[in-house]
């Protein structure tokens, strides 16, 4: 059973005749533990797709089911709590809370849910992502790559079943991108996470299990990634 599925997903902006079809009937299924990249030119609707999958935005039509939950049936508050517990996000802009330290940023989703962070686990992640020294720094003191690693750490902290990444390396130079991607891949493998990642970089897509190509709001093809089994 797929952990994530989208059926007939449509998202229209505006009205006829100036309607923008950001998504125009997308069907997608992602199996648990899969690493899927979505590639496409900018404006192809890939970010919109990701927003729908993460419950950040509501589709005009269609259904998104994540881990057995139908997102369209949830209220804003429920969606937020659902995200907090089940979905990790990594964005192009690093999206760290500027007023919290690295550690606090990482444990934020855990604490938001009123849980005590599992210190050993968090330390493991921090260690794994090479953030040990920056543990107590504020985000603005970190380099782009470091910030993105913190964002990944935060996305992993709640052990979410799904990790959604929107061009996580979009703002990074090539070397740093490779570094950050490695981290993403390694950690997801280690913690058995399902990853849906958006990128327009084929090299990066190469690292995934499956590549979904999207064009003008429609899936135009699927390719196999390096790790297809």
């Amino acid at each position: 059973m797929p952990i994530l599925s989208a059926q007939g997903l449509k998202k229209y902006y505006g009205e006829e005749p100036n309607i923008v079809r950001a998504l125009d009937g997308v069907d997608l299924e992602v199996e648990a533990g899969e690493f899927v990249t979505v590639v496409g030119a900018s404006g192809s609707g890939k970010s919109t797709l990701l927003h729908m999958l993460g419950g950040l935005d509501k589709p005009t039509e269609g259904k998104v089911t994540v881990d057995g939950h139908e997102l369209d049936k949830m209220s804003d508050e429920e969606l937020t709590i659902f995200r907090r517990r089940n979905v990790g996000f990594v964005f192009q802009s690093f999206n760290l809370v500027p007023i919290l330290s690295v550690y606090e940023n990482i444990v934020l989703p855990i604490e938001l849910d009123g849980n005590r962070p599992d210190k050993a686990f968090i330390d493991e992640i921090i260690d794994l992502l090479g953030l040990k020294e920056k543990r107590n720094s504020l985000p603005n003191m970190l380099s782009g790559g470091q910030q993105q690693r913190v964002a990944i750490a935060r996305a992993l902290a709640t052990k979410p079943s799904i990790l959604l990444a929107d061009e996580p390396t979009g703002n990074l130079d090539t070397k740093t991108s490779q570094d950050v991607l490695g981290v993403l891949k390694m950690t997801s493998a280690k913690f058995h996470q399902t990853i849906v990642m958006i990128t327009h970089n084929e090299h990066i897509a190469q690292l995934s299990d499956r590549i979904v190509r999207i064009e003008d709001g429609k899936i135009v093809g699927e390719g196999r990634g390096i790790n297809e089994k």
């Binding site: 508050e77 937020t80 995200r83 907090r84 999206n95 989703p109 938001l112």
Partner: peptide
Amino acid sequence: RFYGLLKTIGTTPRQ
């Protein structure tokens, strides 16, 4: 951005 980010991560409207 700050509040939107908090919401993305799972801060409910009430929070």
